[in-house]
């Protein structure tokens, strides 16, 4: 653990070396995600409710998923950008070090500037919590935290999966962004607004609904099934097969040139 803190220190320092662009990127990230918030607000100004959800209720959904994604980008970026790690030969170097590969990759790319997005999401969440009509009790707060953590794990699992694919292709497959960026973007609204089939897709193929739609039903008291509140755990379970796939891919690593 101490070792990882050190890695983190080194990264923080080297990203601070370029102070101006560090803050610039932070602001840029924040503004980039403001577009989604603004679109959502404008649509609500026109339509008032979407599939029966009020503005604040959808914001609850919006802020948790944005926060999950931003956090996973801060900490799991190494897997998201794995093709760069492979191409630049950094992965060769990692294999030469006597420490866990996962740990090294996690700490290879920590993007602190994404924290600006976490802050944005936190502000939105703070706005939505009292206005969403949820009667907050200890267990509901727990479910909310679980939603965020489950979301982080779900995105981490996807990143891990894509990284595993990189071992075969040596390049990132842009198409897979449909799953990650798509889940973030479409996760702004409770998935049910996209219809029954999309709800199924996002339940059984990608567990987006498990960290977002179902627990939201529980929070809003729209469903009697209290186990809906525990469904974000699916995000954690999701990472297991992803990790196994990555390990298999590792055997097929082909390094590159020179």
């Amino acid at each position: 653990m101490k070792l990882y803190l050190r890695f983190m220190g080194i990264h923080f320092r080297s990203s601070m070396e370029y102070k101006a662009s560090f803050f610039m990127l932070g602001i840029a990230t924040m503004i980039a995600s403001l577009g989604g918030l603004l679109s959502l607000t404008f649509l609500f100004m026109r339509f008032h409710t979407i599939a029966g959800y009020t503005f604040s209720q959808v914001l609850l959904c919006f802020s948790t998923i944005v926060m999950s994604f931003a956090l996973s980008e801060v900490f799991f970026r190494g897997f998201d950008r794995f093709e760069q790690i492979i191409r630049g030969g950094t992965f060769d170097r990692m294999l030469l070090r006597p420490c866990s590969l996962i740990g090294q990759i996690l700490f290879e790319k920590i993007e602190f500037n994404r924290l600006s997005k976490v802050i944005e999401a936190a502000v939105v969440l703070a706005y939505a919590i009292p206005r969403s009509g949820v009667i907050w009790t200890a267990d509901k707060i727990l479910v909310l935290i679980l939603m965020i953590l489950g979301g982080v794990m779900m995105f981490a699992g996807m990143f891990l999966l894509f990284a595993g694919i990189c071992f075969y292709t040596l390049e990132g497959l842009e198409v897979l962004n449909i799953l990650t960026n798509g889940s973030e973007n479409f996760g702004h609204y409770p998935v049910s607004v996209y219809g029954k089939w999309m709800l199924r897709f996002y339940t059984f193929i990608v567990p987006l609904a498990c960290v977002q739609y179902y627990p939201l039903q529980y929070l809003l008291g729209r469903s009697d099934r209290s186990w809906y509140g525990l469904l974000p755990l699916a995000g954690f379970v999701f990472t297991i097969p992803c990790y196994c796939f990555w390990r298999i891919g590792l055997k097929h690593y082909k390094s590159n040139g020179s």
């Binding site: 649509l43 599939a51 962004n177 449909i178 798509g182 973007n185 607004v193 996209y194 219809g195």
Partner: peptide, 20 residues
């Protein structure tokens, strides 16, 4: 990837607007 992404993206948005 571009084709798939654009198609999927458009389709999802369409579904949202249909609901609206």
């Amino acid at each position: 990837a571009g084709v798939m992404t654009q198609f999927f993206w458009g389709f999802m948005e369409l579904l949202l607007y249909l609901t609206l």
